[in-house]
């Protein structure tokens, strides 16, 4: 399990990041201010730290200096969006710099990149009998490799990462096709049909009335 520390004084935002990270399969700890974050870093092991800059007690820049001693990669998440602030943050040794307001999918993508750089990313996604090697993009079911198209693959990853939650068609479209939803849901339906057939997931990817689809984990 990947442990991520989020140092953010705004409760709403911290909670939001926590929800998104846990959804994506990371383990997440929250720190309300720099001091608490420092304490947590000293006590526990983390694979990544997400840092706000404007924080009470110890600000993000200062905190980064301490964190670097522990060789933990850090990403700034801040409202400071000027180029000079970004340069300062990156020069101090941050791996990335994300400005608020951010998109959850963008945040996750950037976290993934940084983790991959440090060879810390989740390379396998295993749900039930399905096993996905995220690096080589190979999908196995019961140990048998199944060839999927790019969209089918992304669709499957999305479902597995959000198991047991109903996803709206519109956002499924946006996440997989990376463009704004224009009102045509047939593309999503078609791909879901094909994915079901190829993977034999007719019972697990269920339609939700007026919403979209949900991946249901097998009961153990």
């Amino acid at each position: 399990m990947i442990n991520i520390l989020v140092a953010e004084d705004e409760f709403y935002i911290a909670n939001l990041i926590k929800i998104s990270l846990e959804q994506a399969g990371y383990n997440c700890m929250l720190a309300e201010d720099g001091e608490q974050a420092l304490k947590l870093v000293e006590e526990q092991e983390f694979d990544l730290v997400l840092l706000d800059i404007m924080m009470p007690k110890i600000d993000g820049y200062e905190l980064l200096e301490y964190i670097r001693i522990y060789k933990i990669p850090a990403i700034f998440i801040t409202a400071k969006s000027s180029v000079s602030d970004k340069v300062k943050g990156l020069k101090l040794g941050a791996e990335d710099y994300i400005t608020k307001p951010f998109d959850t999918s963008e945040l996750l993508a950037r976290i993934e990149v940084v983790l991959r750089r440090f060879n810390k990313n989740i390379s396998y996604l295993t749900v039930d009998d399905i096993e996905i090697d995220l690096n080589s993009r190979t999908v196995k079911k019961n140990g048998v490799v199944i060839t999927l198209t790019l969209k089918e693959y992304e669709l499957l990853v999305l479902f597995l990462r959000n198991k047991n939650i109903a996803l709206y068609r519109e956002t499924i479209y946006e996440r997989v096709w990376h463009e704004n939803f224009m009102g045509d849901t047939r593309t999503v339906d078609l791909h879901v049909q094909r994915l079901r057939k190829k993977m034999h997931l007719e019972n697990r990817i269920v339609s939700v009335y007026k919403v979209g689809y949900r991946y249901e984990e097998l009961k153990k």
Binding site: E10, Y12, I13, L16, I19, S20, M54, A79, K80, S81, T99, K100, P101, F102, D103, T104, N162, I165, A166, L167, Y168, E170, T171, R175, V208, V211, G212, R214
Partner: peptide
């Protein structure tokens, strides 16, 4: 910008959750 972006982040983030998942 901080005062503006902090609530914006919350609004965008949580509304994104609401429209993505049937919670």
């Amino acid at each position: 910008t901080h005062e503006l972006k902090t609530p914006l982040t919350t609004i965008i983030g949580y509304s994104d959750l609401l429209r993505t998942y049937d919670l």
